[in-house]
Design a protein around this nucleic acid. Structure first.
Length: 432
RNA sequence: GCCCUGGUAGUAUAGUCCGGCCUAGUAUGUUCGGCUGUCACCCGAAAGAUCCCGGGUCCAAAUCCCGGCCAGGGCGCCA
C-alpha cells in the first residue's frame, strides 16, 4: 500500500502545536513553500489548522520538490519560536510525499483567492480547501447540528419523510417527474403532509430534508434543490411556533458567534444577534407602511422585489415576522381567522434582508380543508388521502421551515446561495 | 421567459468605445536558476492564449454586426 505507515499514529496539527518537543507525525496538504536555498519552509494544513515546517537539513526535502496541495506526512517535533510569526513551528526528521498534486491548480484556493464562483464550483472539491469556503461549511455544519440538538433537547422527535412522492396535486411549484416502475412519481417539493401526519401523533417533530422545485428561476437566492429545517407541532397555533422559531434561531446564531469566531473573521463577518422577541408586523401594516412611503400596492397584492427591499429598510430590524397574510397569498391548508376568512394564520420570518422561514397554523378540520381547497379552485377529491389524515382525532397544529442554504447566506454574509450549498443544483448546473 | 453587462494563458484581469502600432500587456500560478529565518519571502529567466462557438462586414477583426451557448446582475416565476 502507498504511504499508509504513518496513519496509525498521525496527530492533528492543532494537537501537535500543544505537544511541544514530542516526536510525532503530522499529515496534510502543502499550502505553499518558501525556498531560501539553505533553508526551506513548508506551510501545511490539515482539517484542524496550519503549521509551518522549517527544513534546515536539506537532505530531508523531497528531491522532486513540493507543490501546492501535495499530500505529505512529516515526522518531527513542534517547538516554540520567536522568529516564526505563528509562534510555533515544526522541525522535521522525515518528510514523506504521500501523493503529488497535478500543477498548476485549476482554481485559486489561496486566502486571497481570485477565482470566480463558477470556476470554484467546477472544482468544488479543491475549493473546499480554501479558507473562506471551509469557513462557510464549518458554520453551516454548526447551524445544522445546533438545530438538531436544541430540538432534540426540547422534546422534538426527528422524523424521516420520503423524498419520492406520488402526488403532484399539492398545486403551485412545478415538480420534477420521474419514472417509478410502471407509475409516475415526483421528487418532493415539501415534506408538508408527512410532517403533519407525524405531528398529529408524535406531537412535536422536526426534520432536515432536501426538497426540489422544478421552477426555472435564475436568481441569487433560489436553487432547484435545497435543504429545509422543519418543525411541526400539535396543540400549537402560529404564534406558538413563531416563539419556537425565534428562540431556536437566536440560539443557533449565538452558538455561531461563540464557537466560530475564527470562521467569522475569515469571512469578515460581524454577526449581530437579533433581539427577542422579534417584532411582529401584520401584512396590513406592511402594505400601509409601503403606501405611506409612496408605493403602489393594495391589500391582496404580493410584494414586488423592490417593495420587499423597501419594507425591510422601513422596518429596520435584523429579524422580524410578517404575519396575517391574505389567504390568496398562502397555501390552502393555512388556517383562516375565525372573524375573517380572507386572512390566514401564516407568517414569514425575514432575517438579514431575506425570507429564511415561513410557516402557518394548519387546518386540522376535514370539512374546512375541503372548503378551502375548493375555494382555491382545486378539486378536494385529489386531496382525499391528505384530508382523511385529519379525520381521526387530529389536534390543532402548526409548523414552519427554514431554508438551510438561505440561513447560511445571511449568517456568512454571502449574496449568492450557490456559495452556501456544497453542490448546488440550479437551472444549468448538474455537475459536480 | 424578459432586460442589462460580460466571455482574452491554469487562475484573475488590461486591451474592445474610436478595427491596423496586439508578434495580445500585467499579476499570480507553473518550470528552471540564484539567495540561512522566510511568513502572500525576494531576485532573474522561460514556457503558457486556435482572444467562448458559428456566420457576416472589411484590404485588415480580440475589437464592428447577426445568431448560439455560458456567466454575473436586475426582474418574472417560486401553493
Amino acid at each position: 500500500m502507498h504511504g499508509v505507515s504513518f496513519m496509525f499514529d498521525r496527530v492533528y496539527i492543532e494537537e501537535a502545536k500543544k505537544r511541544l518537543g514530542k516526536q510525532l507525525t503530522i499529515a496534510g496538504w502543502v499550502i505553499r513553500t518558501r525556498d531560501l536555498a539553505k533553508i526551506k519552509f513548508i506551510v501545511m494544513r490539515d482539517m484542524t489548522g496550519e503549521i509551518q515546517v522549517t527544513v534546515k537539513n536539506l537532505d530531508l526535502f523531497p528531491k522532486e520538490g513540493l507543490g501546492r496541495e501535495d499530500v505529505i506526512a512529516v515526522t518531527g517535533k513542534t517547538a516554540q519560536s520567536k522568529i516564526a510569526n505563528a509562534g510555533v513551528e515544526f522541525f522535521p526528521d522525515r518528510i514523506e510525499v504521500v501523493n503529488k498534486s497535478r500543477q498548476p491548480l485549476p482554481v485559486d484556493i489561496a486566502e486571497t483567492s481570485q477565482s470566480e464562483l463558477e470556476t470554484r464550483l467546477n472544482w468544488r472539491f479543491l475549493d473546499f480547501r480554501a479558507p473562506q469556503t471551509r469557513a462557510i461549511f464549518t458554520i453551516q455544519n454548526r447551524l445544522l447540528s445546533t438545530f438538531r440538538r436544541w430540538l432534540t433537547d426540547n422534546g422534538y422527535v426527528e422524523i424521516q419523510p420520503p423524498c419520492i412522492i406520488a402526488s403532484a396535486s399539492e398545486g403551485g411549484a412545478d415538480l420534477f417527474e420521474l419514472p417509478y416502475f410502471e407509475k409516475k412519481a415526483f421528487l418532493a417539493q415539501s415534506p408538508q403532509l408527512y410532517k403533519q401526519m407525524c405531528a398529529i401523533s408524535f406531537e412535536k417533530v422536526f426534520t432536515v430534508t432536501p426538497i426540489w422545485r422544478a421552477e426555472k428561476f435564475n436568481t441569487p437566492t433560489h436553487l432547484n434543490e435545497v435543504r429545509q429545517m422543519d418543525i411541526e407541532q400539535a396543540f400549537a397555533d402560529d404564534e406558538a411556533v413563531m416563539k419556537v422559531l425565534e428562540k431556536v434561531l437566536v440560539h443557533m446564531l449565538r452558538d455561531i458567534k461563540d464557537h466560530c469566531p475564527e470562521e467569522l473573521k475569515t469571512l469578515s463577518r460581524e454577526l449581530v444577534l437579533p433581539e427577542l422577541p422579534f417584532r411582529r408586523i401584520t401584512y396590513i401594516e406592511a402594505v400601509e407602511t409601503l403606501q405611506k412611503a409612496g408605493e403602489q400596492i393594495n391589500w391582496g397584492d404580493d410584494f414586488t422585489k423592490p417593495q420587499e427591499k423597501k419594507l425591510m429598510e422601513l422596518v429596520g430590524q435584523q429579524a422580524f415576522f410578517l404575519k396575517d397574510w391574505p389567504a390568496a397569498q398562502k397555501a390552502f391548508y393555512s388556517m383562516p381567522y375565525d372573524d375573517n376568512s380572507e386572512v390566514v394564520h401564516a407568517f414569514d420570518c425575514i432575517y438579514g434582508g431575506i425570507e429564511i422561514c415561513s410557516g402557518t397554523q394548519r387546518i386540522h378540520i376535514p370539512e374546512l380543508l375541503r372548503e378551502r381547497i375548493s375555494k382555491k379552485g382545486l378539486n378536494p377529491e385529489n386531496f382525499e388521502s391528505y384530508i382523511e389524515a385529519f379525520a381521526y382525532g387530529a389536534p390543532p397544529h402548526a409548523g414552519w421551515s427554514i431554508g438551510l442554504e438561505r440561513l447560511t447566506m445571511t449568517v456568512t454574509g454571502k449574496d449568492n446561495i450557490r456559495e452556501c450549498c456544497m453542490f448546488p443544483r440550479d437551472r444549468e448546473r448538474l455537475i459536480p
